[in-house]
Write a protein that binds this DNA or RNA. Structure first.
Length: 456
RNA sequence: GUGGUUAUAGCUCAGUUGGUUAGAGCAUCAGAUUGUGGUUCUGAGGGUCGCCGGUUCGAGCCCGGUUAGCCACCCCA
């Protein structure tokens, strides 16, 4: 056999037929739920102008953006300019002479760009969903790829907290349909701001939040020592410790009464979370957890923050989102508030694979295979196959007159549940033999009865 | 970006302190079986041991480099 000399770029994957089927099962489930809640589809280009993306995801984010090299750099007339421009790139400065486009890093910023460009035509509140691949130049590892799909739903142009309630319901509905047991963590950026203010330290909410965000992972002692290194005193620590300690206690909000008294901004955040939780069903309330240390990295969140974690499996978050007051302001159109969520399809896939949650039917493509037992026989087979296809039955005729053995094995490998045997005898009698390959049951039907047979 | 770890047949993996011609299971193909697959039996094909270099009389095994996978950190879906 010839030696294969080709490969895939790091962190990317091919998806074979079986995998695509399973991925589509997830994607169509999510899309259907988005539509149920009145969201409309949107697609944006794979690439954006570099300016649109840079600086939106923090310093780390900038490094992880895949830049696209400009064309025509080999033009001899431009050689000097290209060399000068490349010098600047080497010094860590992006330069339009070398690159001015990049692959999109998420769906939220391109959406904000779209809204900014089209705000005068849109009907607000504008509810859109978007299912597309995004790219990050991250080092691959478990549940992390360089090309992966995001499924986002956002509402812009409304401050109503009912949007948050709806989005959480979308999460619960989708994961229930997929049979994934999960927990939604909720927090509010204003709570983080409040706790940060309470410390009285000159530290930004973002810096503070990114430290306490690791609470679940590293434990409270590590957080404490890290903060002390930044100049926190025992006195500062005492003020905030009690709030960190009640993280993950559902809903635990009443325990924040003292924080509400000390910080009006925190009070606002706590009220928002209470409002949202109060609109959930009792069953949902059991699966949502207020977590005052939940931060998430993105700079632009201003209100509620969500994160979804699958239970009983070792995997990072399978979804996340939050409210942002002024995302389009970055593109010159102020005062359009929004809130959105995102599903991580690739991780959801990995979770479902690990917990074996894909239903059996997902694997069935072709429902019925007609055996090819000769020229005259296959002609009759074809005349029966076409009406079945018209009725929506997925069927195929074996491509050549081969031994039974071969044709059976083909059906087995393709996971086709039914085979139709139509040979000389059957042609004469005007019948067919229909065999269920799983159970081994075989019946003789008239050709007319076959066309009316209900294939599952 | 930092660190760890792995790389042997299409797949999953053995391969002893460095020693002749590198093995197994599964899969594939052919036959037993020209109108009944899955089970069974027989046989066959398939490997420059990731790539480059070094040590050695001799390297799948030791050393250096490199590429890729996996895992962790950072960060994140």
């Amino acid at each position: 056999m010839a030696k294969v000399t080709v490969g895939l770029p790091q962190g990317t994957r091919d998806f074979g037929p079986d995998v695509v089927r399973k991925r589509n099962y997830i994607l169509s489930t999510i899309r259907n739920v988005f539509e149920l809640y009145g969201f409309q589809p949107l697609e944006t280009p794979a690439m954006e102008n570099l300016d649109t993306l840079m600086g939106k995801y923090g310093e780390e984010g900038d490094k992880l953006i895949f830049k696209i090299l400009n064309n025509g750099l080999d033009n001899p007339e431009k050689e000097k300019q290209v060399r000068d421009d490349f010098e600047k790139v080497l010094r860590g400065k992006n330069n339009k002479g070398i690159t001015e486009r990049a692959l999109k890093y998420d769906l939220t910023i391109p959406f904000a760009r779209y809204v900014a460009m089209n705000h005068s035509q849109l009907t607000f509140p504008f509810k859109r969903y978007q299912v597309q691949p995004v790219w990050r130049a991250d080092r691959p590892q478990k549940g992390r790829y360089r090309e992966f799909y995001q499924c986002d739903a956002d509402v812009v142009g409304s401050k109503s907290l009912m949007n948050e309630v709806e989005l959480i319901n979308i999460y619960f509905t989708v994961f229930e349909k997929l049979n994934i047991d999960c927990t939604i963590k909720i927090n509010n950026r204003k709570v983080l701001t409040g706790i940060t203010e309470l410390t009285g330290k000159p530290i930004t909410t973002k810096a503070f939040a990114s430290i306490i965000d690791k609470l679940d992972k590293v434990g409270i002692d590590k957080i404490k020592s890290e903060l002390f290194e930044l100049g926190f005193t025992q006195n500062d620590w005492t003020k905030i410790e009690k709030f960190l300690k009640i993280a993950d206690e559902t809903p635990g909000l009443h325990q924040f009464a003292s924080l509400k008294m000390d910080s009006s901004i925190a009070a606002e955040g706590i009220d928002e979370v209470s409002y949202v939780i109060s609109h959930l069903s009792d069953a949902q309330k059991k699966k949502i957890v207020f977590n005052s240390s939940l931060a998430r990295g993105l700079d632009y969140y201003t209100g509620c923050i969500f994160e979804v974690k699958a239970n009983n499996v070792q995997m990072g978050s399978i979804g996340g989102g939050g409210r942002y007051d002024d995302l389009t302001g970055l593109f010159g159109v102020p005062n359009i508030p929004g809130v959105g969520i995102s599903f991580g399809v690739d991780r959801i896939y990995d979770v479902m694979e690990e917990l074996q949650l894909f239903p059996e039917e997902v694997h069935i493509g072709t429902q019925v295979l007609f055996f090819n037992l000769g020229t005259a026989e296959s002609k009759v087979a074809f005349s029966l196959l076409q009406p079945l296809r018209e009725k929506g039955v997925r069927g195929e005729l074996y491509h050549e007159n081969s031994k039974f053995d071969k044709q059976f094995k083909y059906a087995e490998k393709k996971n086709i549940p039914y085979v139709v045997i139509l040979g000389e005898e059957e042609v004469k009698a005007g019948t067919v033999k229909l065999k269920n390959i799983k159970t081994g049951e075989q019946q003789t039907l008239s050709q007319e009865a076959l066309i009316n047979f209900s294939f599952i």
